[in-house]
């Protein structure tokens, strides 16, 4: 039931205290946090560096802006309204299309402009932000999800999390929602964690509630067939985030757009440790490989090549 610290150390597993003291405190200075905690700032940063992310269509900052919404959205394609300071998928309204005056959600149900306005208004008054602080609502293009991952998730589309250490992509995973996780992609609620090989973009191991499994419990899909298309783009985009944020320990979340390829959805300054469980592998040995590169100047592309050679199963 319990193991010993020395065994964990031998397996190279990073614990919470190590993450906080040796990683975050050291490589992610506090003053840099806003650029990843605030999705609007991240978005502008990504756009400036020409990284691919869903395009920002507009920002609703005031109740005055809310009144202008109808006019603004009149000739908009599919879009998403989300709080700049939200987390955990809270307050995200996806509008996949129009049906006359109605805004149609991916589920097929339609809402009218009043409800869209109310949603934006709730966002800016802080309904979804931490501590209820007032926020801004971002309107961005909806991602046209690729069907490459169909059947791997009980609900929704999985996103890919890549841990970037000092600019090197060191580990990757995806979280697949299940009926048990109530459609949520949260590992400790029973979602499936699937490790992805940095070298190939293919599935490594899958775990649910700490136990290995081979098939998705609800869809029956064989998890070993998970294979991320345009994988090099994923790792390259992720490692480029190092230059724009200068954060040494970063989690990058990406999704795959049918036409535009990998899109960065959000950055995380405190990425969790469950990725080790999904990969059935500790992060420490990989950090050490990267630490050994200290002093060698490499571009993001070179780092990607290096990482894909090194971190292959």
């Amino acid at each position: 039931m319990f193991t010993t610290p020395s065994k964990l150390r031998k397996a190279g597993i990073v614990g919470m205290n190590w993450r906080n003291v040796r990683m975050i405190a050291q490589y992610n200075p506090r003053r840099l946090y806003p650029q990843v905690d605030d999705k609007l700032k991240t978005k502008l940063l990504l756009a400036k560096a020409n990284l691919s992310a869903p395009e920002l269509l507009g920002v609703v900052k005031t109740q005055g802006n809310v009144r202008e919404l109808e006019e603004f959205l009149a000739d908009c394609g599919p879009f998403v309204i989300k709080p700049a300071n939200g987390s955990g998928g809270k307050g995200i309204l996806v509008i996949a299309g129009r049906d006359g005056g109605k805004f149609v959600k991916p589920s097929g149900s339609g809402i009218d402009i009043a409800e869209v306005r109310k949603h934006a208004s709730s966002i800016i008054s802080g309904l979804y932000s931490l501590g209820g602080r007032s926020d801004v609502a971002m309107i961005e293009e909806m991602v046209q999800f690729s069907d490459a991952f169909d059947g791997f998730s009980f609900q929704g589309v999985p996103d890919i999390r890549i841990i970037v250490y000092k600019g090197y992509p060191v580990m990757a995973m995806t979280r697949l929602s299940t009926r048990a996780s109530d459609g949520k992609a949260n590992l400790h609620q029973g979602a499936v964690g699937l490790g992805i090989d940095i070298g190939t973009g293919r599935a490594l191991k899958a775990v649910q509630n700490g136990r290995p499994l081979t098939h998705h419990p609800d869809t029956g899909k064989e998890l070993a067939t998970f294979d991320v298309p345009q994988w090099n783009d994923f790792v390259l985009q992720a490692s480029m985030c190092y230059e724009i944020t200068t954060m040494g320990y970063l989690g990058v979340d990406l999704v795959l757009d049918k036409e535009k390829g990998p899109q960065i959805l959000e950055l995380n300054a405190r990425p969790g440790l469950a990725i080790q469980i999904a990969n059935d592998m500790g992060l420490l040995p990989r950090f050490e490989v990267v630490d050994a590169q200290d002093g060698i100047e490499r571009t993001a592309a070179e780092r990607t090549v290096f990482a894909r050679q090194q971190f292959v199963a």
Partner: peptide
């Protein structure tokens, strides 16, 4: 304690499935 970077007690349980040679 704030600068302690070792494992937490609960982590000995959480990461236990990852230890092969039991």
């Amino acid at each position: 304690i704030g600068s302690y970077s070792g494992y937490r007690l609960t982590e000995l349980y959480r990461f236990e499935p990852m230890i092969k040679d039991k």
